[in-house]
Design a protein around this nucleic acid. Structure first.
Lengths: 354, 354
DNA sequence: GTAAACGCTGTAAACGCTTACACCTCCGCC
DNA sequence: GGCGGAGGTGTAAGCGTTTACAGCGTTTAC
């Protein structure tokens, strides 16, 4: 017996739970063409004669063939997945945003990998890293716990990166920002028209840029419609309902009550409403309340909350558009998007009491 | 000039926007070991001497190396991604569920690909297909628009499949179901103790299994605590607030008013509350209202809504557990999970008026 | 009539990883 | 002194795609 070594390596028996899925090669064999042709057929890239096309498609059908996305991504050097990173989906602002982004992505053939940071730097960093490992086509981040080293690292990889409502500068980076001014201006204008002269404000955490911007817009609007000498009282909140409740109590307990209260988000505004109700005040007869965001519950509340709407789909569209711009052009140009806000008058605002 | 053909194939110039990412091979070269060793080191699979380990890790650091997940998934024949399919994230029930699942998955090293069906069969089918192309480790579906052919197709692929609150039978399929009985029983018991004898019910769409189950549980509880001859009035809703509002109006307009109303979900319960308020009724003095789900807003509403809590984390945990069971054991045993529900008494329920 | 152009197809080299085998060294044991 | 085993490492064959290049038969243009 000669030491016959050919074919000594047996085919690696991979632990397949079921019969292996069909591959391109199987289709090619059945259709009696090459794998190249099959690939060209199913991707509609390159010329294929009608006859061949039909043969191939028939084989695909017959074998229930579907391509392996990983192999494809590997060969292509990119994937059709995008990473979406938010701090907390349970926050009522996010679901609609996620929904809109997912819809847009789906339509353009992208999948969304969703990750939450839970307000944690490390989770954010780790998730971003996982995105990179996946060769994602782009990353959309709406979370405030971003730090510069991370962004720098991402920019180095040339991954299109879109920040929502977060001023981040860096190459290959887009920011879709929010025009807080307009909506807040409209809201204050509305209140002023209704005769309100004293408007208190419940702010978000001052270290958050979005909170700061809202506050600034509010001050500007008050100066404009009420008078430059007017100094509205400002209370600090943390974007949560309880803080609105506390601020509401404080405001109502103070000697000179305002006739209207604006809050930096709807949750706090609802807290204010709760405080008023506890005091036996009627809204909007005794006091007008305005929120911000226009979360789903704003219109369901009682009374329906007048609020400034930050349109989620515009934000989402801005994000996906920015991402796809970067993809198509390959130019990592900063496409600055700006989504508007606008005031929605509902039941919680009315004429100032005499 | 001889026709020198060696090396005629140039390395394919792939359009790399930036310098190519570092690969395993680069690390191996720098560390002066083989790719196998590098792989074994970073994956902690197989024995590697301490000295080598350090060399490799240093090289990894130096090159900012991170592995390519697609290549890995391809080689492994599976990915560390799971597919999550819900009908509508904007529905206030889902965000917390998604959150819990994402958290669980993240901790175990899985990524979540999120997709929405938007109550559309075709989108569901297409998303599922994309999941398959991704070799996902498993799929979690919480959407009622599932049809049998689809499930059959999935089962054929042997992808662990978990349905939430959806009775689906099939090989390799787990269902995490919800024990509606307990919470609803508790709720009705609570109302009965408070002296309520006439409890109206606002149901969900009768063709949805979850709605049917809730209704059945309600009837059983009424028979038990109020009396077997009691025939509570049942109104049809569609799980949306407006339908609760309509049902509420209808109930209040009817000659014999009940003293309590239970709704199949919180949204409809809030609709009922709204209807009551419009009639000038005070809750819970004139009427008690109970919801179902315990969405975030239930506790924030005014009055805080007494409701039956369907714990999202338990549901999520059931789902991920079922998935990982299938993964570990390879046994596609049906691990039937059952998540309990429980009543939460809050401000919307009180003693029956005399 | 020939050259250039075109349409279609196949061959085989990547893509970046995992891992079965082979091999080598060192150690303990009889 | 030989042998078995264990620990460490390298070689190279996949994983299932995409696609550059080459080759072929047909037109088309001159």
């Amino acid at each position: 017996m000669s030491t016959f070594r050919a074919r000594t390596r047996v085919a690696r028996a991979r632990p397949r739970t079921a019969k292996s899925p069909t591959r391109l090669g199987d289709v090619a064999r059945l259709a009696r063409v090459s794998t190249a042709t099959v690939s060209r057929t199913i991707n509609e890239t390159g010329a294929v004669s009608e006859a061949t096309r039909r043969k191939v498609l028939r084989a695909v059908q017959k074998l229930h063939y579907y391509p392996n996305a990983h192999a494809r991504s590997l060969a292509l050097g990119r994937s059709n997945q995008i990473g979406l990173l938010v701090s907390d989906i349970a926050n009522p602002f996010f679901p609609e945003l996620v929904k809109a982004i997912e819809r847009d992505a789906y339509q353009r053939g992208f999948e969304v990998i969703l990750a939450e940071t839970d307000y944690d730097h490390e989770r954010l960093a780790k998730s971003v890293r996982r995105f990179l490992e996946r060769d994602v086509a782009g990353v959309i981040i709406m979370a405030s716990e971003v730090d510069m080293p991370l962004v720098a690292g991402l920019a180095r990889r040339r991954v299109p990166l879109v920040f929502l409502d977060l001023e981040v500068t860096g190459q290959g980076t887009s920011t879709v920002s929010v025009d807080y001014g307009r909506g807040i201006d409209e809201a204050v204008h509305h209140l002023a028209e209704l005769g309100h002269r004293e408007i208190a404000y419940v702010s978000g955490p001052p270290n958050l840029s979005s909170a700061a911007q809202r506050l600034q817009a509010f001050r500007a609007a008050v100066a404009r419609y009420i008078g430059p000498r007017s100094h509205p009282r400002v209370y600090d909140g943390d974007f949560r309902l309880e803080s609105g409740l506390r601020a509401g109590r404080e405001i109502l307990a103070a000697p000179a009550r305002p006739t209207a209260i604006m809050a930096a988000n709807d949750l706090m505004a609802l807290g204010v409403v709760k405080a008023c109700r506890a005091e036996g005040l009627s809204i909007p007869r005794d006091l007008s309340v305005v929120g911000f965001d226009d979360i789903a519950f704003a219109s369901l509340a009682d009374p329906p909350l007048s609020t400034v709407c930050l349109p989620r789909d515009a934000l989402a569209r801005g994000a996906t558009a920015a991402l796809l711009n970067s993809l198509d052009e390959g130019s990592h140009a900063v496409t600055p998007g700006m989504v508007p806000t606008y005031f929605v008058a509902r039941g919680s605002t009315g004429p100032a009491p005499k």
